[in-house]
């Protein structure tokens, strides 16, 4: 328990990652899947950001206060989080676009339903070919 309290940021980020991962993989609703993707990524970014922060140090922007590098926090994790956010925004955008397309064709957001409709269409095609 004490370990969890000491590392509560890590614990929360792993929890977020697992929640998001489960939603992305096992939920049938496409919008919830995309939400899951974003929650999962948030977990990773929280983990990264918490690693980069050291209490009592300055933001890594040089403004004449101190020339000692040990007074500043590490800027790389923040840079990584920023890059990661850009990536996840573009991935979210393309997933939403794909979802809109799929909804227009099949009028449902349930992925199982979509596959069921496709299978039925394929069976119909086969029957027509036999005739």
């Amino acid at each position: 328990m004490e370990v969890l309290l000491d590392h509560y940021v890590e614990a929360v980020s792993i929890l977020l990652f697992v929640i998001g991962f489960n939603l992305l993989l096992f939920d049938k609703n496409l919008i919830k899947k995309i939400m899951g993707l974003n929650i999962m990524d948030t977990g990773v970014y929280l983990f990264l950001a918490s690693m980069g922060y050291i209490e009592g140090r300055l933001a890594p922007v040089f403004n004449g206060v101190s020339t000692n590098p040990a007074d500043y926090v590490n800027p790389i994790p923040a840079g990584l989080v920023l890059t990661g956010i850009v990536v996840s925004v573009s991935v979210t955008a393309i997933s939403l676009a794909l979802t809109v397309r799929l909804y227009k064709k099949y009028h449902t957001l349930n992925l199982d339903e979509v596959y069921r409709i496709i299978r039925e269409e394929e069976k119909k095609e086969e029957k027509e070919e036999r005739k």
Binding site: L25, D41, L80, S95, L98, L102, K105, L111
Partner: peptide, 30 residues
């Protein structure tokens, strides 16, 4: 229709893979 459904399935698997790869890389950095 079929292609978009195929792309959807492909994308979900890919995103799961990317997520695992990302957390692996972050752990490596940590």
């Amino acid at each position: 229709g079929h292609t978009i459904a195929a792309a959807m399935r492909y994308m979900i698997f890919n995103l799961v893979g990317s997520g695992l790869f990302l957390i692996g890389n972050v752990l490596l950095y940590a």
